[in-house]
Structures are given as structure tokens and as C-alpha cells.
Simulated assay, not measured.
Amino acid sequence: MNAVVATLAASGPLASGWFLHGLVLRRRLTAARRDPLSGLPTRAAFERQAARALARGPHAVLVLDLDGFKAVNDTFGHAVGDEVIRSTATSLVDVLGEGHGSVAARLGGDEFAALVPLPDPVALPWLLRGLHDAVTAPCAYRGQSLTVGVSVGACLTAELPSTSLPLALRRADEAMYAAKRSGGGWRIADGPALTCTTTAGRRTGRRGTAGRGAA
């Protein structure tokens, strides 16, 4: 018994060291999955979470792109632009909620994506209106009131021929680009047919349900 106790005592520092090492690795891994500016999951982390979630039922896949963000950066500087990115991330989390199966992410630059459980498609326009209003609300920064627009595209996975995240993101991106071409707001993709690629690398917009904020 004394030998066992002695062995455990001797191994204590080593075990403690391995525990701390494992804790540091887990924290680094978690940090790598989060965008350091917005605090949202990165594209890779979002794609992993979303792919698993899609197998559990119908969802809405959203793609958002800020309107006028470059002008904010050029006029006020990148520090203010960073604040707009953080504010947009906060709006996404506030509207979509946490712990209900929704996932929001920053894809890069001023583009975001989200996955929302949505068994009833009737609720989607209400969600998009609320999200649009939250993102475009004035953002206070050091005594300045900043505003940006946003174009939002949405795709209902229940309307797709297969449960495919890349396909859903492409549909949502098409709808987002159509909303942007019409001056911003939101648009819902309404069909499975693809359209030709634009010179900007995105897809041209298809017909769909559209809105402009409170419309």
C-alpha cells in the first residue's frame, strides 16, 4: 500500500502537467474555431456544425453581406469598421438566440452566414425582417452614430432536392446577391434551378420573395 501511495504521489506533478497541457490545447482549439474579431464561429467550424444540424430536420440557411461597409472603413478608419463587424455579430446572436439550434458565423470580410431550425416556412419573412432591422439599426461608437445596410439571402432546405449545405449556401448567396442588386433588404430563394454565374463570381438572382426592411 505504501508503495502505491508513493507511486501516485510521485506521478502527481506529471499528471498535473499533462492536465494543464491538455487544457491549453483545448482552449487553443476552441479559439481557432472562433473568429477573433466577431467572436462567431469561422467558416470551417460553421460548415461542420451546419452539416450535422441539417440531418435533424428543416432549416433556413442565410447569407448576409453588409452594404456600405467599405465607405465606413474609408471614411472613419478600420477601427470603426471593426466595431461594425462586432455589432453585426451581436445583432445576429441577439435575433437568432443561443441554445435553440441556431448557428451564426463570419465567413470573412463583411459576409456572414447562419443556420436556423425552421419547421414552419411561414416564419421566415418575420425572421428576416427582424434580422434586417437589427443589423441596420444605428451603432454608437465614441459619440458617433454609424449605420450600414445589409443584403440577406435565405434558402429553405426543405425545398431542396437533397440535404446539401453547399447547395443551400449557393441558393442563399444567389438570393442575397439579388437583394443587393435591388438596393438591399432580404430575399428568399424560391426554386431549385441554378442560374448563370455573374462576372463578380456570385450567382445572378432568381425570382423569389423579397422585402426591404419593414416591407
Rank of each mutant, 00 (worst) to 15 (best):
T199G: 03
S145C: 09
L167I: 04
T197F: 07
R26S: 12
G81C: 06
A179D: 09
A10Q: 12
V135M: 04
A79W: 00
N2S: 12
G191T: 13
D67Y: 08
I85D: 07
M1C: 03
A189N: 15
A214K: 05
L40S: 07
R203D: 14
M1T: 12
T90W: 01
T197W: 09
D120W: 01
T136K: 05
T30S: 11
W186Q: 11
A137Q: 11
W186K: 11
V61W: 00
H100V: 13
Q49W: 11
V135L: 11
L92I: 05
A10F: 08
S16C: 05
G39H: 09
P36R: 02
V93P: 00
G97W: 06
G205N: 09
Q144E: 13
G12Q: 10
P117A: 10
E159H: 15
L160E: 10
E159W: 12
R171M: 09
R48V: 15
A89M: 09
G201Y: 07
V72A: 02
R206P: 00
F46Q: 03
R187L: 15
D74S: 06
S151R: 11
C139E: 00
R207A: 15
L62Y: 01
S182L: 14
V61K: 00
L25V: 12
P192I: 13
R48H: 14
S164L: 04
A179P: 11
Q49V: 11
E159V: 02
A137C: 05
L124W: 08
A189Q: 12
L107R: 08
D74K: 07
L54Q: 03
E98T: 15
T209F: 10
P125Y: 04
Y177T: 09
R207T: 12
P161G: 05
